[in-house]
Design a protein around this nucleic acid. Structure first.
Lengths: 104, 104
DNA sequence: TTATATTTGTCAATACTTGACAAGTCAGTA
DNA sequence: TACTGACTTGTCAAGTATTGACAAATATAA
């Protein structure tokens, strides 16, 4: 299963020699939950991506695109028109410029 | 909002001079629901895509990629790393060949 | 007006996701 | 072997989101 986001944050965490139990509370979650996110068993929430980029001092967009890619993969993974669908999405994005999500 | 799938099935339906109330029952849904799907207010279900391709006699993959594209668009539409994420998904798909969904 | 087609709004039922916890495995070390 | 610490697994209730069904509104034409 594709888990670019989880692999990355585990990598970052290990580089900093941090334990799950040290990072999890900063995201207001328990250790098992973070473990699941790192292994791709669960998706992090959008805001947690932001928090993680701060914790590990990396550009938010880097984590965000991995996180989004995992979500997209999850949508297309079972269909063999996956590539075709991604192209169609790109076309749509070109026509329909994406409006920013309202920040809360 | 992006609605390639809905636009297409409306186009097909009108080409055949069919009414919502003639098509909807074939999908076991009511007229308002099909109206919403055509206008992109709701997503059709995976099986309904198959049924629609049969009703309108078009290749399933054509409808399927539009339907999938709408779903993907829905995931990425609010983020400005959308393109980057789509590229990352394509890379992932190349590495991780997609397994077919188990037909039920 | 009347009839027909489509759209809009609401809401309960259903399904999915999340968070929290207990219990489990695994690796290292005394 | 037993103990410890780090992580993983399984379960389940709570919280969200989606769906289906219906009534009512709008629109268009005759």
């Amino acid at each position: 299963m594709a888990n670019q986001f989880g692999d990355r944050i585990r990598q970052l965490r290990e580089k900093e020699n941090l334990l799950l139990r040290q990072v999890a509370p900063q995201l207001e979650m328990d250790t098992p939950m973070l473990s699941k996110i790192e292994r791709g068993e669960r998706f992090a929430k959008r805001e947690q991506v932001t928090q993680l980029s701060k914790i590990f001092n990396v550009p938010e967009d880097d984590l965000l695109s991995l996180w989004l890619a995992d979500k997209v993969y999850d949508v297309v993974k079972d269909e063999d028109v996956a590539f075709k669908a991604l192209s169609a999405t790109e076309e749509e994005l070109k026509i329909n410029p994406n409006r920013k999500k309202p920040p809360r």
